[in-house]
Amino acid sequence: MRHPKLLALGLASLLLAAFARDAAYRSFTAPFPGHSQLIFGNDRLQDIAFLSAGFRRLAADAAWIQYLQFLGVREFGRGGYATPEELAGGVMYPGLMRRTLRIVRLDPWFRQAYLYGASIFAWSEATKSPENAIALLEEGIRYDPDYWMYKTFLAAIAYRERDQFAKMAGILEEALRNPDCPAMIKSILANFYKTEKRYADALRIWEGLIRDERAPEYHERAAGEIVRLRAALRGK
């Protein structure tokens, strides 16, 4: 055997690398949920492929796009995003909690997914499950305890459940000032104001939404609401 020193140096370097690896793990380990906590739905092969390649956050992004497409299907049953078993249940958005958890278990710091999901569960007439919204936000707080928007949403949900709508509106107004606030929350608050005949407040929010370049899906609706609200204000 020639050059045994090279072999010895190779093995010694490998041992050094192993030692450095253990030291790094003792110093910090990324607090991801374990793979056993991941929610694999119909797209398990997609998620596993991304995970195998080390693209965990990208897996969450792909799941997010599929989530938005699923929600965007207005007439349930079209688009192939629900299984036949789910459709047979007669629910508008079947398996929504599972779909939301799929994203946040892949990327526990995907704030928009928590806020968007919680908004739908708490305020959408089609889902109406505040307990899911609370569970989602509590999971978000576990991974991101300093992000105040989760606690803000929890407070708003709590006031809504107690029919304390004025307090709920106050909390949501505060949330609206944060750039992370989903456009859905703005539309929910605007609709609430309209129901309460607070047309000027509703108009203010819709005018903000129509100028928001990050929420083009709300522009058409905002344009219609602005016309109606201005007419309502003139009628007053």
Binding site: L14, A24, S27, F28, R57, Y147
Partner: peptide
């Protein structure tokens, strides 16, 4: 990149060990 938005990020010690690991493993190969 998978935990860029994590609430807690690693300190300089972790990066140092990562550099040692990279150099050590590459040197081994």
């Amino acid at each position: 990149r998978d935990f860029m938005d994590a609430a807690t990020m690693p300190g300089p010690e972790w990066y140092a060990w990562l550099a040692v690991y990279t150099l050590g493993y590459t040197a081994a190969t």
